[in-house]
Amino acid sequence: MIRLWRHLRLWNATCRDATRLVSHSIDRKLSRSERGGLSIHLAICPKCRRFRASMAFLNKLLHLAEHSRMLGAPCGLPDAAKSRIRKRLG
């Protein structure tokens, strides 16, 4: 009964449900009813389609940023730490 209810509910997925499913699809295989519910929702919802596209964009951005090792906090190593480390290395 609960499964049936879940199943029916997914056919009427909200944007909140759909965004959760888009994200989960990156980390796990969705069930058949989840996939069905998501694709129906995406077919009628341009906002959630843009959400999905931005998730793919984000993924690419982070991979590239990590690959190029260019992303760091814009702070320098404090002088006190620098001299402490220097002592330890010497």
């Binding site: 090792r69 992303l71 760091g72 906090a73 814009p74 702070c75 320098g76 190593l77 730490a81 480390i85």
Partner: peptide, 10 residues
Amino acid sequence: GDALYGYALL
């Protein structure tokens, strides 16, 4: 040192 620190801190 600064680059390593910034990378780690983030």
